[in-house]
Nucleic acid binder design. Sequence first.
DNA 1: AAGGTGACAGTTT
DNA 2: TAAACTGCCACCT
Length: 112
Amino acid sequence: MSKSSDFFEQVYQVVRLIPKGRVTSYGAIASYLGTKGSSRLVGYAMNAAHGVLPPVPAQRVVNRNGLLTGKHHFGHPGRMQELLEAEGVLVKDDQVADFKNRFWDPAVALAL
DNA sequence: AAGGTGACAGTTT
DNA sequence: TAAACTGCCACCT
């Protein structure tokens, strides 16, 4: 019953709602959860997202610059970019192409 | 129990 | 203009 109290679980829920082919930022998720200053916790949560079921598409979460900061945490660098490209998200120089257009804001998409 | 960690973000120099 | 520092807070040892 106290599972929902886990901050990580909250993050996972939002990340799993990210549509395929879209990406969001750590700060956007943190802000949506009401913990704007805890953007680092979102990244930290992703660190523990490995092996979590249902799977958490952490590759769709990048920093506010659209940079694949956590690519080194996918077991092997390049795996994150590969996953994104497989979903239609072009990545150039470890950065999401047309990031602003690909950005998916939970505060807007999940509004109401 | 207390301290250190970190896949960010915003501000200042 | 770019680079560096600080704040932030839940999880881990």
